[in-house]
Design a protein around this nucleic acid. Structure first.
Lengths: 224, 224
DNA sequence: CATCGTATGCTTACATCGTAAGGAGTATAT
DNA sequence: ATATACTCCTTACGATGTAAGCATACGATG
């Protein structure tokens, strides 16, 4: 009987957690379309249908991926001044989204907000940080959406743009595009080079600074 | 022979344009998952495979949807002051995204940037507007990403959140959620009511104002 | 220890998807 | 009139999510 046991024992027992982790790993490595019940099963040495003993359906796995990613958020160390703390937090969030390039596609699908405790900790952290600026509770709620929206949207644009290739390659593409443009698009032609020239990091900081400055000014104008 | 002709003639000839329009209509009415080659065909009184005479593949149809939506952008009338013009443009863009609730999911998929002339007109418009604030060309490029990211990200959050139901229903959900929260989440508990209380419109304006104020301050600090 | 319910995994099967291959009919060019 | 090209249809294939049912192994109870 020991052999019977060992035949089973030499593989870890399946759990929802292991399934979700595996799915995330596959997604990061080969993209969302590679995340398939059969594929996840194969990765775990199991048939696709076996997953259903631990998971309601595929969507539940995708929900799990969202929770897992959220829970991976690394809380940045606080800085001396508020603006810098805020920047660090925003960078950490963008960093996380970029580490799992397809996760924004999951967020974009209508699935309800993530509810697990682990995945709410980053939210709590962000709210606490925003409120520490001196905003009222009400403005804190609104600022949360402003920063959250900005960061997520920025990452989407970042992924969606030319995305691949070196900076030089990008610049070339932009030059060609600008050259082929009708007169009608003179502004686009003027500005286009900077799309490539300004790295994504710099662009991110720019918008972030706009938001931060906006918050600081608002706090000055009407303290909580 | 007239009869033979008429048998065919009584339905519009298939074109890429009609296919894309139909696909968008289906998507708006029943969501992205309803957009199927067979379904689009049925809607046009045609078999699925017939579509391939006018369209490379399904992805090309989805690209077409993105272009079509972009080209639907309604340019707002200019206002007396720059901030208000900017607000109108941002509202128009958000409005458009909300009119086609699943289009952000398409944008979020890695597909390259939309290149058709019609769909670049809104970009040109936005750049022209931003530059009119007094920003340098370089800062204009960056501000474009800031505003674009914010608007798109905001709409995603807006869709993803509780989304359905009246304001009262939302408020109730938030109350229940807050009540069930561990101590650890005191800030979330404090702020949560305002997530529901502040309507999405008000929240959008808040973040928008942050960005606009940021831009104005930057222009004042370093004119182009 | 025997047994029996419960959990876990496997096999098979089905509807639906995107689309490859090729046939039939019509319109246009020669 | 004949050939060519285009449009649309039929059929078929592999992949997907998952329903249904069977086999096995484990843990609790007698």
């Amino acid at each position: 009987m020991t052999t019977d046991v060992s035949r089973k024992a030499h593989r870890e027992p399946l759990t929802r957690e292991r399934i979700v982790e595996t799915a995330l790993r596959v997604m990061d490595a080969e993209g969302l379309e590679a995340v398939t019940m059969r594929r996840i099963g194969r990765e775990l040495g199991v048939e696709a249908m076996s997953l259903y003993n631990h998971v309601e359906d595929k969507e539940s796995i995708l929900d799990g991926i969202c929770e897992l990613v959220m829970s991976e958020f690394e809380f940045p160390d606080p800085a001396e001044d508020w603006a810098e703390s805020c920047r660090r937090a925003a960078r950490a969030w963008r960093q996380l989204l970029k580490q799992h390039p397809d996760v924004m596609r999951l967020f974009a699908e209508a699935r309800g907000p993530v509810r697990s405790v682990d995945s709410m900790r980053p939210t709590e952290f962000a709210l606490r940080l925003l409120r520490a600026s001196g905003l009222s509770d009400r403005d804190t709620a609104q600022a949360f959406h402003a920063f959250g929206g900005y960061i997520q949207g920025f990452v989407i644009m970042e992924m969606g743009s030319i995305a691949g290739g070196t900076d030089e390659a990008q610049l070339k593409v932009h030059e060609e595009l600008a050259a082929a443009l009708p007169e009608e698009f003179s502004t686009l032609r003027d500005v286009s080079p900077y799309f490539a020239e300004c790295g994504a990091d710099e662009q991110f900081e720019f918008g972030l600074d706009l938001l931060i400055r906006g918050v600081l000014e608002r706090v000055r104008a009407q303290p909580a």
